[in-house]
């Protein structure tokens, strides 16, 4: 906890990733950015880039195709980072639960810090969840975070260098 950590809560940058949901939650996120709710007044920005983002906002039930992508996005983010799972699908699959092609929620792939319930959650709920995420994020350290079976994951997700 240094001098700079005090300013953390003033500028959380968001990376939003839809893992195969119905886009209902995404519409809510868009409306949060729009003038009516304007989350930029909290300094939140939707960066769309894991390298510069602090909060990973995941929607959708995590389809099998998305699994590796989600993990890699998570690994590319710099610590301290927080994962927010938004909507019923992200919690346990929602109406997609136990389908052949889904992983039943974000928690099976990457560790989740904040859950935002609802299908789809209202924007107020989203903002509330974000505030909570920022509170958790404030307390996190800069230490590297590991996934389950980290080395293997890195190996499978790595890109071979060209010769």
């Amino acid at each position: 906890m240094g001098f700079f950590s005090k300013f953390r809560k003033k500028s959380p940058w968001i990376l939003h990733y839809n893992t195969g949901g119905c886009n209902g939650c995404d519409i809510e996120i868009l409306s949060a950015l729009a003038p009516r709710y304007d989350i930029e007044r909290f300094g939140m920005l939707n960066r769309g880039n894991p390298k510069q983002a602090d909060i990973l906002l995941v929607t959708g039930p995590v389809t099998k195709n998305c699994k590796d992508v989600l993990r890699r996005l998570y690994l590319e983010m710099a610590e301290p980072k927080v994962v927010v799972a938004m909507g019923a699908c992200a919690h346990g699959g929602g109406i997609f639960r136990n389908f052949y092609h889904v992983e039943n929620g974000v928690n099976n792939i990457i560790p989740v810090d904040v859950w935002i319930p609802g299908c789809a959650p209202r924007v107020e709920a989203l903002i509330d969840g974000m505030v909570e995420a920022v509170e958790i994020w404030e307390k996190k350290s800069k230490e590297k975070e590991f996934l389950k079976d980290h080395e293997n994951v890195i190996k499978t997700l790595g890109v071979e260098d060209d010769g």
Partner: peptide, 28 residues
């Protein structure tokens, strides 16, 4: 820009908050 879009917008010193926040990230 925010006012032009009828938003409140971030605080005036927001770029510096971003700056401090980025200082606090793990370098990768």
């Amino acid at each position: 820009k925010a006012r032009m879009q009828k938003r409140v917008g971030p605080p005036l010193l927001q770029p510096f908050y971003d700056f401090f926040k980025l200082m606090d990230k793990r370098p990768i």
